[in-house]
Computed example of a mutant assay.
Amino acid sequence: MKNILVTIDFNGKERILLKQAYELASAFHSKLWIMHIAAPDPDFVGYDAGPIEVRNSRAKELKDEHAKLREYAFEMNERHVETEGLLVEGVTISTILKEAERLNADLIISGREKHGFFYKAIIGSTSSQLIGESKIPILIVLLGD
């Protein structure tokens, strides 16, 4: 296993995923890719970008997310696991699959949180969609209740 892609959300539970990713990458001497999918730019999905305050807020959010990814990658590199952080804008499932293929990932690690029936019915489950669509093995990590 040469490349492991771990997808994180900045929901406060990413350390759980990163711990699992570190253990596997360390055991297999794999390169670790830490990826966060940012929501698509409003222009991308057909909306106006909005006032300058909205654009500035969005730019700050992306800058902060990128800095956090660099921090996580630095921590892993300090622990002797070659790691890079990726901040990619796009639609979650298709972006994960496209990047995993581009990186020649041997494994995708993703988290799963428990949600109620209505959430699942309306929003769906990223982990379920990944399992259904990926040709690359998936490790789903339960992120608590």
Rank of each mutant, 00 (worst) to 15 (best):
L142Q: 04
A38L: 11
E14W: 06
V81A: 08
M35C: 12
S94W: 08
H115E: 04
I8R: 00
A38D: 03
T92W: 02
A27W: 11
I108W: 06
V54L: 14
P51W: 09
K114R: 13
D106F: 08
V141W: 03
I109R: 02
G144D: 00
F10M: 08
R58Q: 13
E23D: 14
A105S: 12
I131P: 03
T95Q: 01
E14F: 05
T83Y: 05
I108S: 02
E65Y: 09
E14A: 07
D145K: 07
S57K: 05
D145G: 12
F117P: 03
E65A: 15
F28D: 00
A59W: 10
Q20W: 05
R55W: 12
S125I: 13
S94N: 03
T7M: 11
M35T: 13
G116F: 09
F10V: 10
Y119F: 15
A59F: 14
K98R: 07
K60C: 05
G85F: 10
E14T: 09
K19W: 04
R55S: 12
Y72Q: 00
I138P: 01
Y119P: 06
G124E: 00
E113G: 13
I131H: 05
H115M: 10
L139N: 03
A100Y: 06
M1D: 02
K135W: 09
I52V: 15
L5K: 13
S134P: 04
M76G: 04
L5S: 11
A38Y: 10
I136V: 15
I136A: 05
G90H: 13
G85I: 10
S94F: 11
G46S: 03
Y119V: 14
T7Y: 10
T83G: 06
L86F: 15
I16F: 01
V141H: 04
L69P: 01
T95V: 13
A38V: 13
T92K: 02
I8E: 00
A49E: 02
L130E: 03
I136F: 08
K13A: 09
G116D: 03
T126E: 01
D64P: 02
V88I: 15
E133F: 13
G85C: 07
Q20A: 06
S26E: 04
A39N: 01
M76E: 00
V54E: 07
N3A: 09
Y119A: 12
